[in-house]
Simulated assay, not measured.
Amino acid sequence: MSNSSPEGGQAIRLDSLSAQQLSQLKKQLDGELEHLTTSYQSLVRAQAKFRDCLKSISTGLTSQKPDTQILVPLTSSLYVPGKLADVEKVIVDVGTGFYVEKTTSDATKFYETKVEELGANLKDLGKIVEGKEGNVRVIEDALRQKVMSGQNAQAGAEKEGT
């Protein structure tokens, strides 16, 4: 019985490991799986924010005229009143606190590209998570077999002793 990770990790003969080593390996994989799952959820949230930006451009600007009263978000729960100065240009957060002025069509392309990139990353990360989950199941099975064989050997020794 052996196990190799989908990203080309080394193979381990699970039947050569002790129950304690299998337990430690499972604990390590559980930690990796938790980290990957958290990363996956963060990517999903980022993709949703980019989709919201696309929606804001398509529904919030195209139907408006300059000098329209709007609420400008300062935080997720704090908005201030403002006036729409230009419906053809927007300020886009390109990351790490940098903002760039773009036309609405360029901003739309930017956000669509981000959504697609994150979709590809999510697909790749999903495959890795599935592989890790499979590895955890294999290790759990090997650990279960190791514990049961140890119990059976102990029971057989007790019968011979009586």
Rank of each mutant, 00 (worst) to 15 (best):
M1P: 10
N3E: 11
S4H: 06
S5M: 15
P6A: 15
P6Y: 12
P6I: 15
Q10E: 12
I12W: 05
L14A: 09
S16G: 13
S16Y: 07
S18I: 09
S18E: 06
Q20F: 07
Q21W: 09
L25G: 06
K27V: 11
Q28K: 13
Q28C: 05
L29S: 04
D30W: 03
D30G: 10
D30R: 04
G31T: 11
E32C: 09
L33W: 05
H35N: 13
L36G: 02
T37C: 03
T37M: 04
S39E: 15
S39K: 02
Y40T: 08
Q41D: 12
Q41R: 07
V44S: 02
R45I: 03
A46L: 10
A48K: 12
A48E: 14
K49Q: 14
R51S: 04
R51G: 02
R51E: 08
D52Y: 02
C53R: 15
C53K: 12
S58T: 15
T59P: 00
T62P: 00
T62E: 03
T62N: 02
S63D: 08
Q69A: 14
L71M: 11
L71G: 09
L74P: 00
S76M: 07
S76T: 10
P81F: 04
L84H: 09
L84P: 11
D86I: 07
V87T: 15
K89H: 04
K89N: 08
I91D: 13
V92A: 00
V94L: 00
V94Q: 01
T96W: 06
T96F: 04
F98I: 02
F98S: 00
Y99K: 00
K102P: 00
T103V: 04
S105I: 09
D106P: 00
A107E: 06
T108R: 01
T108P: 00
K109A: 15
K109W: 04
Y111W: 00
E112P: 04
E112F: 07
T113D: 02
K114V: 10
L118I: 08
L118Y: 05
L118P: 01
G119A: 11
L125P: 05
G126H: 15
G126L: 09
G126K: 13
K127Y: 13
K127E: 15
E130T: 11
G131E: 07
E133I: 05
E133M: 02
E133A: 07
E133G: 05
E133K: 07
V136R: 03
R137D: 12
E140Q: 15
A142E: 14
L143F: 06
R144C: 12
Q145I: 06
M148P: 01
Q151L: 12
Q151W: 07
N152R: 11
N152W: 10
G156V: 14
G156A: 14
A157K: 09
G161C: 03
